[in-house]
Write a protein that binds this DNA or RNA. Structure first.
Length: 184
DNA sequence: CTTACAAGAATAT
DNA sequence: ATATTCTTGTAAG
């Protein structure tokens, strides 16, 4: 589906399992982040067959270190310029960049994000865009929940989503819903 | 409070 | 062109 491209990947260990970060060699930007739950996808993605294991460069090591801290729910600044937006459609890009602005320790809802993007009726499309977020953790799509505060889905598994939010200080009621007041 | 469902935009096949 | 989706608001049980 694409011309010959070379990729590299590095991985870090987290409490959830191994997280893989894939770079494109020619611009050295991040193409994808695979959460532990997505391991099978990573292994079966012929798209990345060139990503034979390699020793990351110095900057790569730095990024891996940051991703590791993100997986522990800590506060980390990662510039969006490090990401490769080339293959991402405008709408999804819009949603992802908006999601990036959701502050640590707060959550938004698919509906609220939809309103900020334009129409209030695109909540489901927002969920769709976040579901295929190529940069989980870096783009904090775990900070998007349903309008009633329930968790919704997560590519890395709902338990991981909840854990990440707990690390950020989000509190839940007895029915696993984010308590009102922390919405962005 | 708990289903049930249409509406709805974007993307995957 | 059709199926699918990390939804939402409303309506009925």
């Amino acid at each position: 589906v694409k011309q010959e491209q070379k990729y590299r990947y590095g991985s870090v260990q987290s409490e959830f399992g191994a997280i893989v970060v894939v770079w494109r060699c020619n611009n050295n930007k991040i193409v994808r982040v695979f959460l532990p739950r997505q391991k099978d996808i990573f292994q079966s993605s012929a798209y990345y067959i060139h990503g034979v294991d390699s020793i990351p460069g110095r900057t790569a090591a730095k990024i891996l270190r940051k991703v590791e801290r993100l997986s522990a729910g800590r506060s980390v600044a990662l510039h969006l310029d490090l990401l490769d937006w080339g293959m991402i459609y405008p709408f999804q890009k819009q949603v992802l960049r908006l999601e990036y602005r959701v502050p640590r320790g707060r959550v938004s809802t698919y509906g609220r994000l939809a309103r900020r993007v334009g129409k209030s009726s695109v909540a489901r499309a927002v969920g769709n865009a976040l579901a295929r977020n190529p940069f989980p953790l870096i783009i904090p799509c775990h900070r998007a929940v349903r309008s009633d505060g329930s968790l919704g889905g997560y590519a890395g598994g709902v338990s991981m989503k909840r854990r990440l939010l707990e690390y950020e200080g989000i509190e839940f009621d007895e029915h696993d819903r984010v308590i009102a007041g922390s919405f962005w």
